[in-house]
Design a protein around this nucleic acid. Structure first.
Lengths: 257, 257
DNA sequence: CGCTGAGTTGAGAAGGTTCAAGGTATGTGG
DNA sequence: CCACATACCTTGAACCTTCTCAACTCAGCG
């Protein structure tokens, strides 16, 4: 597989990065919102109301991690998505009658605006409109990966996938050549994201630890000893790498190319 | 549950329909695209290239049914979403390196534009921008329901959910008080959408037939004898009803309210 | 020091999957 | 019009993964 991964252009390659730079840098675009948005600072575990005085709101994540989860009647909850810096969420993304909740998984900051306000600003500022559309597109692509993982991957593949994703978001290299990840999400959160039982998740992670892919670490942190082995376990590793390219600096990127 | 369903406003009710009518009728908005888009007519089973001369494209479904499916290395394919009239899809919604394919499930019509063109038109026409944003929002909500179904529902609940969804899209009432659905998707398609094996799907549908929820019918068609019983089997029935409200006329709506 | 909540682990049960065989509709060519 | 081929669907039996439930560990904390 190593040689396969070397080729940056896969079969059926879709739009190249060439299409995307129409958008100017996200931070420049967003700076214009600073005066319009309320900046919410959250602590771990805090729930955020999805609507604003009963109306539609938008949330733009500035730092930290959030998750959107839903609970359909008579079923356990499902974590629909994780959100990190740059992600955008509208109230109406949450299905009605589904007991949807937006929860902060770590100390975090999110900007909130009335949707109608942001809509108006986007109408006047093409760069902002583009930023929003591209945020949607990226999230749709991540969503597709998530669905494929829940629908078709084995337990181990799912766990490897979510760890790969977190490694790309928050992984920092360690002297020993591994990666240290922040784990803002609890075992239960991750299990609910993956459609697994948390006992099963725990078993799988123990197995990964015993095969040397993961290492021991303090709570709310995880040590990936062998990122390439982890990526090899996840059928979605290359997709995720491509999706995350251009977002953060990415210490993992180089290891897949 | 019948009495529960009577109340139109659930707990934690999110933005009311009041927010949405900012958008003018979809058909009026889209009519302005008629000269810009290529109208593709497809037959059942036809694959549509996701990119347009290597660049990013948008597809707006006008009639018929489509599905987007992805296949990650070493895993079976996953149908990520079904698309019907009014749905919008960008090339970049498909994750890279995932062997993504857009397939027509029936004779259908879809409009295709270069994304940059539609982006320009939307910048000039707020109603179009609003239509696009709301299409995204609806699809995100449906996506959340789909993830919850795959992640947390039992096989029977998943099947009931997809049948409920199809009933809301394409169901026509029969003299006997049931609903006749077009089934543009094969058993395998539906199984891949639900993250089930097609053998299992077949077994579940047989069971539903033997319990009188479904009836016998010709191929590529399904007969729902008792829609309310079906909806009772799906934890997502109320969510779906709410999401679809205001889209088609919906013969099913009245039965849930 | 005992409480609490999160994580781990084992044994048995449940639900899906796999594989293989048979059935049923649709289309094709004689 | 029939015989045949094909694709799709159905069903049964054995198997396997994951879930369930319960016991246990461990860290943080009053």
């Amino acid at each position: 597989m190593a040689s396969d991964v070397k080729s940056p252009t896969g079969p059926r390659s879709r739009a190249d990065a060439l299409d995307e730079p129409t958008c100017t840098a996200a931070d420049a675009v967003l700076s214009t919102l600073a005066t319009q948005a309320s900046r919410l600072r959250t602590r771990r575990g805090q729930n955020i109301a999805l609507t604003l005085e009963g109306g539609e709101a938008v949330f733009i994540v500035r730092s930290g991690a959030f998750m959107l989860h839903v609970t359909m009647p008579d079923t356990p909850r499902q974590v629909v998505a994780f959100f990190f810096r740059g992600d955008v969420l509208r109230s109406s993304f949450a299905p009605p009658h589904a007991n949807a909740t937006l929860t902060s998984a770590s100390a975090a900051e999110v900007w909130r605006l009335r949707w109608t306000v942001l809509e108006g600003l986007a109408a006047a500022d093409p760069a902002l409109a583009c930023f929003l559309q591209d945020a949607m597109a990226t999230q749709m692509a991540r969503h597709a990966v998530h669905v494929a993982a829940i629908g078709q991957f084995s337990g181990e593949q799912r766990v490897a996938t979510v760890l790969t994703e977190l490694a790309m978001r928050t992984g920092m290299p360690t002297p020993a050549g591994g990666l240290m990840l922040d784990m803002p999400f609890s075992r239960k959160d991750i299990a609910d994201y993956l459609g697994l039982n948390s006992d099963t998740l725990s078993r799988i992670m123990s197995r990964l630890r015993s095969t040397g892919v993961l290492g021991h670490s303090e709570r709310s942190r995880a040590l990936v000893r062998d990122f390439q082995a982890l990526a090899r376990l996840s059928p979605a590793a290359r997709s995720l790498a491509e999706i995350h390219r251009g977002r953060r600096g990415g210490h993992c990127q180089s290891k897949l190319d």
